[in-house]
Write a protein that binds this DNA or RNA. Structure first.
Lengths: 339, 339
DNA sequence: CGGCCTCTGGCAACCGTCTGCCATTCGGGG
DNA sequence: CCCCGAATGGCAGACGGTTGCCAGAGGCCG
């Protein structure tokens, strides 16, 4: 059994080396080591060189906890979202993670399970150990978020909050594109499948109401309980009863549900009615028919939001970044049946 | 503008209260406050009561960083995985997150992008601020992991590692069920769509080789680059050329890719050949045909693995938990074409 | 009534790093 | 040759909690 030491040799003990170990070895003071490692220019170049060498040899890593105490900076950011497994959030998290990493920071992910109380509790706890929070699709109202943001910076992602910096998709633009697309195909009445009681949902519905009164498209809302596949399936009867020729779903999961229920009932989409999804999750192109959907720039939302959080932010006033939504036309939309 | 203070009133300043603030208010020493909050029984009950009250009033939260310094316990666990956006990992993360939360701990999620070097770097950095690591589908070899585990506990999830506690699905059982299912349908030759150069992949292939020599099923491997939809699509030509009547995909994404490519080429599945996926991600039942797949107990893997990490672990020897895999039969498998 | 144990609470050191301020050295300009 | 400033390094206190040890107050027992 030979000595399989790696390049960054580590101490035999389980204890990680500290700046004291380095200082002792070089007969320097810990403060010098600290500065050598993090204050470029402050310490003589050759000394820095030696310190670096020993640090490498010992496999030294700064202890983020110990550093966080005096500086108040932990090098950690948190993402708080209602549902981790929602595919919508995948890309957002990944975008955020990559930006965080590029800033040398780590990412904490926490789920609030859609409960406002738990969300608040989570945020308050996390604030102690984090430099900033990314709050996705918050269930908290603007006033509460604003108060929480007094402690540590908060950026709202995928939902707008008046006094907070936010990164949101251009709902109005997206919905306009969807409605235009349907109108061109010949549709004149659309049902919106919304999740009752969600703030984001209200925003969308308001925009749709706006657009409907402006244009020549009639719009009705069909409320569902949960933004899930099953939620979508449950709406089929009401869709058929409403007499609309097209459906705009709260998200792709819901649209999937509609597709599934229709298929089970022997109803052909898009012959009988058209379906437009929302988000363009990866499975949208895999269904039959492939889903026409509004592609939310989720990855970019994560990226921009984290950038807002991690960068000092030159301007003081909360910035509201709005990212474009793109209509992806696939097979689930077609002209309405003749009547 | 009225004073909209919440129940847990917070200090007007942005600074969070400390045990010193509580102590001062009650003319006690900080140590008493510390003990009152975390050492049940140590401090007089009525005193504890008063301290609790003030703590609530001030909205006190313990600072995990400060606590971590003397104790070495941060109340944080990390999950390190190659690809955050892989849907396979999300249920696992969620399971882990829930267990962590139930232990009052937070979860850090970090992506290694499939690079062994980056994975190692990530683990070493994280070890400074974490009580333990959950390493998912590691690209590191057993020896390296063992060494890293000397610093902070590591549990291997979804892949086995000799000297480390691990939680893995029962590959052999699952693959046997899949092969039996295909055999019953009449298939005698199967292609395995594996990702070349992945340790987990080797394990599966070895088992398949075993099973093939035992039974009356011939097996060939078709290598793909990436475990993605596109990776699966790219294999269609080779599948056709190989003459097999059934395909076992590395995961559901790959299976989706095969389905998509077949559909694009006008080839009907399962008439022309059968497809079996792996993992049962949520979209597996949404495709046409709906995917027959081996359901990995991902949620449970996350749960058990985190439990192993968070609980003291009564027994010293590394425990290896093996969870059953279930075959979910849908529409993508059928008898082979007559010949 | 004295000794001892239990119950409570305080003191102070420590965890690892950062940083304001001071001390020393050295070089250059006047 | 003196003065001053730049360069470099050290001292010590601070960050917020934890904990070993000690001390005073009672209560109990013999």
């Amino acid at each position: 059994m030979h000595d399989d030491e790696t390049s960054t040799g580590e101490s035999p003990t389980g204890r990680r080396p500290t700046i004291y170990d380095i200082a002792e070895r070089l007969e320097l003071s810990p403060s010098t080591v600290s500065r050598a490692l993090h204050k470029p220019g402050r310490i003589n170049a050759t000394t820095v060189e030696k310190i670096r060498a020993v640090a490498d040899e010992l496999g030294y890593r700064v202890n983020p906890m110990a550093r966080a105490l005096p500086t108040g900076m932990s090098g950690t950011f948190a993402v708080v979202l209602p549902d981790i497994t929602n595919p919508v959030h995948f890309e957002l998290i990944r975008g955020a993670e990559q930006v965080a990493r590029s800033h040398g920071a780590t990412l904490v992910v926490s789920e609030s399970e859609g409960s406002p109380a738990l969300e608040r509790e989570t945020i308050e706890t996390l604030q102690q150990s984090v430099d900033g929070l990314l709050v996705v699709a918050s269930r908290l109202d603007a006033a509460q978020l604003r108060k929480l943001a007094a402690i540590k910076p908060i950026v709202a992602a995928n939902h707008s909050a008046r006094d907070l910096p936010s990164v949101t998709p251009d709902l109005r633009g997206g919905l306009t594109a969807a409605l235009d697309h349907l109108h061109e195909l010949g549709h004149r009445s659309v049902a919106y499948l919304g999740v009752t009681g969600l703030a984001i949902n209200r925003a969308r519905w308001d925009i749709l109401l706006d657009l409907a009164t402006e244009g020549s498209m009639s719009v009705v809302e069909i409320g569902i309980e949960e933004p899930t596949v099953d939620g979508g399936s449950s709406a089929l009867r009401r869709i058929r009863a409403s007499g609309v020729t097209a459906v705009l779903a709260y998200n792709d999961l819901v649209a999937h549900g509609v597709l599934r229920a229709a298929r089970a009932a022997g109803i052909d989409v898009p012959t009988a009615f058209s379906v437009v999804g929302f988000d363009d999750i990866f499975s949208a192109e895999l269904t039959v028919p492939a889903l026409t959907t509004l592609r939310s720039p989720l990855r970019d939302i994560g990226t921009k939001a984290m950038a807002l959080l991690a960068d000092p932010g030159t301007n003081r006033s909360p910035s509201h970044v709005v990212l474009p939504i793109e209509l992806v036309t696939r097979e689930s939309t077609a002209p309405p049946p003749p009547r």
